[in-house]
């Protein structure tokens, strides 16, 4: 589980993670925002339907694939949050 350090407040945007509105700091990656929400897993794999979560946070492992604003297979660690963004768990190949 993760938490945010108690730091001076920053400007936030509102994103919707799996249907829940959450205020997250502007400029943050989707993967970071999702991890801070402690949603457990962020996708299931296409082959064995096993749960996964962000692993490398720097764009090399492709384990953080999520459905962002309806588009599947987005690398959550490489996309920055935007106000009103819909972020959803991806199931398998992204249906």
């Amino acid at each position: 589980m993760f938490k945010r350090l108690d730091e001076s407040p920053r400007q936030t945007v509102t994103v919707i993670i799996n249907g829940r509105s959450v205020a997250v700091p502007q400029g943050e990656s989707v993967a970071a925002a999702v991890l801070a929400e402690n949603i457990g897993y962020s996708r299931t794999t296409p082959v064995k339907q096993l749960p996964r979560a962000p692993f490398c946070m720097m764009g090399v492992c492709f384990d953080c694939l999520m459905v962002i604003d309806g588009v599947p297979n987005q690398q959550a660690c490489m996309v920055q949050v935007r106000d009103g963004m819909h972020i959803e768990r991806q199931h398998g190949s992204g249906v």
Partner: peptide, 10 residues
């Protein structure tokens, strides 16, 4: 001859 493959799709 060139071939390309995409990600998995439904």
């Amino acid at each position: 001859p060139m071939i390309m493959v995409t990600e998995r799709l439904p």
